[in-house]
Simulated scan of single mutants.
Amino acid sequence: MSSRHDLQTRLERGIAALGVSLPAGAVERLLDYRALLARWNATYNLTAIRDPGEMVSRHLIDSLAILPYVQGQTLADLGTGPGLPGIPLAIAAPERQVLLVDSNGKKVRFLREAIRSLKLENVRAVQSRVEEVEGQFDCVTARAFASLEDMLAWGGHLLTKDGIWLAMKGKHPDEELPGVPVGFEVRAIHTLAVPDVGGERHLVVLGRTAA
């Protein structure tokens, strides 16, 4: 078993490699979140990743890799599952209001327990299909959630006029780009270097086209 000290070392090394700065106490809260996820995962199977070190790399550090691209005061994380990337992003920026959206009841129960036990006052969770969520957000995130075409068709209404959509992908999504709906455009595609995570990682940044 990896000790908490080992996991903290791995997490801090990853944060340093990403070059992101986090508020005081964030590392402890991230580790508390991982521990809570592992505990619930034993019963509810919320994530296929069970190795503690892998959870740090593939969940926490992978989520924080997009932190430099997040903007605005409000964020919606669609298809968040057990809170990825939404909870790590919320811990990293407690002044930002974060809405976690998932249609799976047991995952939303976990999210509400994580919000309560980690005292994440800037976060709320809703069990809903993306199409039925109301409101608009400065930033929308989605990790391995759907094709660009589908995610914007279902959730495009959630983006403010000047907001940005951050779609986390594995390999470069060349074949998805022609499907971006009218009214939206790809602003940038960033290759992410995530410490201790093999395989390609890409971030597609989208926004509304100027009227």
Results as ranks from 00 to 15, higher is better:
residue 2 S to F: 15
residue 7 L to S: 07
residue 9 T to C: 07
residue 11 L to Y: 12
residue 15 I to D: 13
residue 15 I to W: 14
residue 15 I to S: 08
residue 15 I to F: 10
residue 19 G to Y: 08
residue 20 V to S: 09
residue 23 P to G: 01
residue 25 G to I: 08
residue 27 V to L: 06
residue 27 V to I: 14
residue 28 E to R: 14
residue 28 E to W: 01
residue 28 E to H: 04
residue 31 L to S: 11
residue 33 Y to E: 05
residue 39 R to S: 14
residue 40 W to Y: 14
residue 42 A to F: 06
residue 43 T to F: 12
residue 45 N to W: 11
residue 47 T to H: 04
residue 50 R to F: 04
residue 54 E to K: 07
residue 54 E to L: 15
residue 58 R to T: 01
residue 61 I to T: 00
residue 63 S to H: 08
residue 64 L to P: 07
residue 66 I to H: 09
residue 66 I to F: 08
residue 68 P to N: 09
residue 75 L to C: 11
residue 83 G to I: 05
residue 88 P to N: 15
residue 98 V to D: 01
residue 100 L to Y: 06
residue 100 L to W: 04
residue 110 F to L: 05
residue 112 R to S: 02
residue 115 I to Q: 11
residue 118 L to Y: 11
residue 119 K to I: 01
residue 120 L to M: 09
residue 122 N to T: 12
residue 123 V to L: 06
residue 127 Q to P: 02
residue 129 R to D: 06
residue 133 V to S: 06
residue 134 E to P: 01
residue 143 R to P: 09
residue 144 A to R: 05
residue 145 F to L: 15
residue 147 S to L: 06
residue 151 M to Y: 00
residue 158 L to T: 03
residue 158 L to A: 06
residue 159 L to Q: 12
residue 159 L to A: 03
residue 165 W to C: 00
residue 168 M to C: 12
residue 170 G to V: 01
residue 172 H to C: 03
residue 173 P to G: 07
residue 176 E to I: 00
residue 176 E to V: 01
residue 186 V to K: 15
residue 188 A to R: 15
residue 190 H to C: 08
residue 194 V to H: 12
residue 194 V to F: 13
residue 195 P to S: 05
residue 195 P to C: 04
residue 195 P to I: 08
residue 198 G to C: 03
residue 201 R to M: 09
residue 208 R to C: 02
residue 209 T to E: 13
residue 211 A to E: 10
